[in-house]
Design a protein around this nucleic acid. Structure first.
Lengths: 159, 159
DNA sequence: GAATCACTGGGCAATCTGCTCAGCCGAATG
DNA sequence: CATTCGGCTGAGCAGATTGCCCAGTGATTC
C-alpha cells in the first residue's frame, strides 16, 4: 500500500482539473492511456480514491455558518448519541475522540441565530452531558489532500 | 440562491454514482438532457458544486491516524501561524474560531508515534502558545452533504 | 532460462459530449 | 388581455472519448 510518483501526478492532475478525461491525462502525463486507466482502477480498488462525488459548498446552499461542537457523553450512551446526531442534517461529520467519552462534530447553520436552533437540537438529547461550541470565523486552509499526496508519493520511485 | 427539488436530485444522484453521465442522469430523472446540463452548469457557476475532485482517503495513503488540534495563538501572530501550518502536508484543514485567538486544525499521521512528530512540527513555531490534541478513534458520521442538500431542496417547489 | 508483471501503441464499435435549433408553456410584465 | 421572458423539451450532428481487445517489449523474479 502506497503510491508512487505517477499515482501522485494522476491524483494531483485530477484534483486540479476534475473534468479531464483518461485520454487527456495520458497525453499530459506522457504515458499510454491504458496505463492511466490501470492506475486509476488500482487507486480506486485500493481505496486511495474513494470516489468523485460532487463537492458541495454548504455556504452556497444557504448554510454559511460553520461550527465545531465538542460533546461530553454520558457513559454508555455513545451509540444512542451517534444515532441521534446522524439524524440531524446540519451535522456534517462526527468523530469520537480520546478523552472523557468525547465527540467532536462539525455543524453548519443558516445564521448565528439558526446555529442556536441546531445546537439545541444536537444537545437536546439525553446522553449528552455538556457541549462547547466554537464558531468558525475563517478557513485559511480548506480541506486539502494534494500536499499529503505529494508527500506520500515521495516513497515510490517512479516518475 | 438556493436549490429546488430537481437540483437536489441531481446532486444526490451524482453523489451516489459519480461516474454517471449527463445523458444517463436525464434518463433517471425523467427530464431532458439539456435541462440537466443547464442545471449542472448553474450549480457550478453558483458555487453550489465546487467541483468533482477525487476524494482521497488518507488512511489508504498510509496515514490512518486522524487528530484535531486546538491551538492558542499569541496575539498578532495569526497570519504567521496560518502560513506556517499551510506548509505542513499533514495539516488537512485549518479554521480560526471564536475564542481567545484559537485555531482548530485537522491532522493526519502515519501512526500514533508519527503523530508526535507532526504535532511537534505544528507547534514548533513561535506564535503558538499552547496546543491540545484529540485523537480520533471512530468516525461514526463521515463528512456528508446529502442530508443537508435534501433539507435545502425542501425550500424549492419543483420535484 | 522461463514466467510474471506493467507499460506501450494500435485499433474497433458504441457511446457520450458540446452545441444548436424550434416549439411549448407558465409566469411576470405592461 | 397580449407580450415578453426564462426554462424545459425533443431532436440532430460532428467530434471526441470510453471500454475493450490485442501483440510486443523491458524489467524483475523464481
Amino acid at each position: 500500500m502506497g503510491i508512487d510518483g505517477l499515482d501522485g501526478r494522476i491524483i494531483t492532475l485530477l484534483a486540479r482539473e476534475p473534468r479531464i478525461g483518461v485520454l487527456e491525462m495520458s497525453r499530459r502525463l506522457g504515458v499510454a492511456r491504458g496505463t492511466v486507466q490501470a492506475r486509476l482502477d488500482r487507486l480506486q480498488s485500493n481505496g486511495v480514491i474513494r470516489g468523485f462525488g460532487p463537492q458541495v459548498d454548504p455556504a452556497a446552499l444557504g448554510y454559511p455558518v460553520t461550527a465545531f461542537a465538542t460533546l461530553q457523553i454520558r457513559q454508555g450512551q455513545g451509540a444512542d448519541v451517534r444515532a441521534h446526531l446522524a439524524t440531524v442534517p446540519e451535522v456534517l461529520e462526527l468523530h469520537t475522540t480520546t478523552g472523557t467519552g468525547d465527540m467532536l462534530c462539525r455543524l453548519v447553520a443558516r445564521s448565528n441565530a439558526d446555529l442556536q436552533r441546531v445546537i439545541d437540537r444536537v444537545v437536546g438529547f439525553d446522553g449528552i452531558v455538556r457541549a462547547s461550541t466554537a464558531i468558525v470565523m475563517e478557513n485559511p486552509v480548506p480541506l486539502r489532500i494534494i500536499p499529503l499526496v505529494e508527500q506520500a508519493a515521495l516513497g515510490g520511485k517512479d516518475d
